[in-house]
Write a protein that binds this DNA or RNA. Structure first.
Length: 594
RNA sequence: GCCCUUAUAGUUUAAUGGUUAGAACGUAGCUUUUUCGUAGCUUCGGCGAGAGUUCAAUUCUCUCUAAGGGUACCA
């Protein structure tokens, strides 16, 4: 046991079965916030991380690593736990003008200053064995030999009689014989639930009492020798000195079992706080399967019979499509989505990262799911945009709500857009965007690295209209393609090039000459030249700008012209104007008549 | 089925035993802008139902309803 017991210790204990789910991220964030709030108040608050890998079949080391990576990226740092070395992202609200992932210092997270590790449950087997033996010796735990099939039959029988199935040790249970038999036969160890109701006192929900009749003799060690979640969590929390257990409400029913175990083992119960759950906007559970579900629906809607991706053979594809529960590996699902131009719903932290959300924004948004600071700003608006620092400062368990939350993607998007557009400088955005592109958008990253000045301008062009780092690409996509590699939007051509007096196509030659005469090919001179043209012909800017937009991009929408043109070489701009002139010169249907 | 939890606009939520229940996202519209976007203004929209306590209930109590969680050798 630690000789120095910090005042407040929280923990996040994910099981490494995949990427970090957004709901798990919120749990971690709240635990982090509570510990950091204690630190703000001069108490020794700590947040520790533990890997619950007692499910041998489903756990993997890669998944564990991925979860550490996800947490670190979000800025949810842990004081104790597995080691992680890398660069942390900056909280979104405190971007300085010179950030870039390269310039951030390397940090180390985790460690074991109190000597309470190891932090992987699979490496703590001797500890579980020791405490389990105490229970057996005191006849508070016992071997049981029922096979899974027998248990299933008992459950079925109970169901048929319309009573709930509660496992109890038989009245004529022979302890000595059972212990003897356990030496040679496969068995589980069950906890003898004391015959009394258990009251859990919860800092969010108040006191919740569970009758003894609902609490069965739960399995605490599986036949494979591993402890069950219930036992491991109780032993670990006690040995690691965890004082506050914050977890999702799905664990509320587990709490009386844990409390009973804690009593039996002579451990003090930590304070509990069960947080409301997070659901999709339509009320369904936010699940990794949502991604497969969305893909399957899109494929059915498109009436595709064969795999749109070569790497997936049609048999695999067909069985996956038919089976509601079947999931494809992440990469394959992504490939299908790309092939059919589908945006998969974001579920894991990694999904949101790939979609171009900023870590600070994600933390801000999920903090509001089940918690709020309850403050108003000077204008009387609720305070809901804040950074990690504010969260640590203001967080308290008593402001956690009780009712389940739905995950409103529109609001998250609005938060992300606002941060991108208002809280970041162009330079900071350029750095963030590049870091993102290097990981998720090769084409863009290559283009960025080819010309730094151009990249800065691209950032200036994209940032004011970007909602995510991913969709920022769209605003400047015209600059990444060949001069003749885009089509013209008929409606726009008709409206801005063919119609009107003068017609837009008749404005272009003049403009071309003016642009051609520019020496310093940068936004300001370009803008000046365009404005000058408009003025000298006594035309509104729209009369000049829109035709030019179409010539450059094929459509009537683009970032401001000076910036847009500066993303292309002058020769490219001239070539595009020529191509446009050619296209509009051809007699084409009724547009010319009008 | 049984146990547990919850219930304020479409969503996240604030406040409150007593005149018009406040905000954010969203919706619709207007204004500014060379387009888009941004910004600003306006608009729409809420106490799940029923009893009870009370002079008075969205707020306290009960019932119902609905939603969710649990009911594993998953966590």
């Amino acid at each position: 046991m630690p000789d120095h017991q910090p005042a407040l210790i929280t923990r996040f204990a994910p099981s490494p079965t995949g990427h970090l789910h957004i709901g798990g991220a919120r749990t971690a964030l709240f635990c982090w916030a509570l510990a950091h709030n204690a630190k703000r108040n001069d108490a020794d608050g700590r947040f520790l991380l533990r890997i619950e890998d007692t499910d041998q079949a489903r756990s993997s080391e890669d998944a564990a690593k991925g979860i550490l990576e996800d947490l670190a990226w979000l800025g949810i740092t842990w004081d104790e736990g597995p080691h992680w070395v890398g660069r942390l992202s900056e909280p979104s609200a405190s971007f300085s003008s010179d950030v870039g992932s390269e310039s951030r210092p390397t940090q180390t997270l985790g460690g074991d200053p109190r000597n309470v590790g190891p932090f992987n449950q699979s490496q703590r087997m001797d500890l579980y064995a020791e405490h389990l033996q105490r229970l057996i010796d005191a006849d508070l735990a016992y071997p049981a030999f029922d096979t899974p099939d027998e248990l299933a039959a008992m459950r079925k029988a109970a169901e048929a009689e319309k009573r709930s199935f509660i496992y109890r040790r038989a009245d004529d249970y022979n302890r000595d014989a059972a212990l003897e038999r356990a030496m040679t036969e496969p068995h589980v160890i069950r906890f003898r639930m004391p015959p009394e109701p258990v009251t859990v006192s919860d800092d969010v929900l108040g006191e919740v009492t569970f009758p003894y009749e609902e609490l069965d003799d739960l399995v605490i060690r599986k036949a494979d020798g591993f402890p069950t979640y219930h036992f491991a969590v109780v032993v670990d929390d006690a040995l690691m000195g965890v004082t506050h257990v914050l977890r999702g409400q799905e664990h509320l029913n587990n709490s009386p079992r844990h409390v009973a175990l804690q009593r039996a083992l002579g451990f003090e119960s930590p304070r509990f706080a069960h947080m409301p759950l997070i659901f999709n906007i339509d009320g369904t559970k936010m699940s990794k399967r949502d991604k497969d579900k969305a893909a399957k629906k899109a494929i059915r809607d498109a009436k595709l019979d064969n795999s749109p991706v070569e790497a997936i053979d049609n048999d695999t594809f067909a069985t996956w499509l038919k089976d509601k529960a079947r999931q494809l590996p992440r990469e394959q699902l992504g490939a299908i989505a790309t092939a059919i131009d589908l945006q998969l719903p974001e579920i894991d932290v990694e999904d949101f990262r790939a979609a171009g959300y900023l870590p600070g924004v994600i933390c801000n948004f999920i903090a509001l799911l089940g918690w709020n600071p309850g403050l108003k700003d000077a204008e009387g608006h609720d305070v809901e945009r804040f950074d990690m620092d504010f969260l640590a400062e203001k967080f308290s368990v008593d402001r956690i709500g009780k009712s389940n939350a739905k995950f409103d993607r529109d609001k998250l998007l609005a938060f992300n857009a606002h941060t991108l557009q208002h809280d970041l400088t162009d330079e900071a955005f350029a750095a963030e965007w590049l870091a993102w592109a290097q990981r998720f958008d090769n084409e863009l990253a290559t283009w960025a690295n080819a010309d730094q000045t151009r990249w800065t301008r691209a950032a200036a062009a994209a940032r004011p209209r970007a909602k995510t780092l991913r969709d920022a690409h769209e605003a400047i996509a015209f600059a990444l393609i060949a001069d003749d590699a885009f089509d013209y939007d008929d409606k726009a051509v008709n409206k801005f090039l063919l119609k009107g007096e003068p017609a837009g196509k008749d404005v272009l030659p003049d403009l071309r000459a003016a642009l051609d005469a520019i020496d310093d090919w940068s936004p300001d001179p370009i803008d000046a030249a365009i404005a000058n043209r408009a003025e000298s012909r006594d035309l509104g800017m729209g009369k000049v700008a829109q035709p030019l937009r179409i010539a450059l991009t094929g459509a009537a929408v683009s970032p401001p012209l000076g910036l847009s043109l500066s993303l292309l070489a002058k020769q490219s701009v001239l070539a595009r104007i020529d191509r446009c002139a050619e296209a509009t010169a051809r007699p084409s249907n009724e547009a010319t008549k009008a």
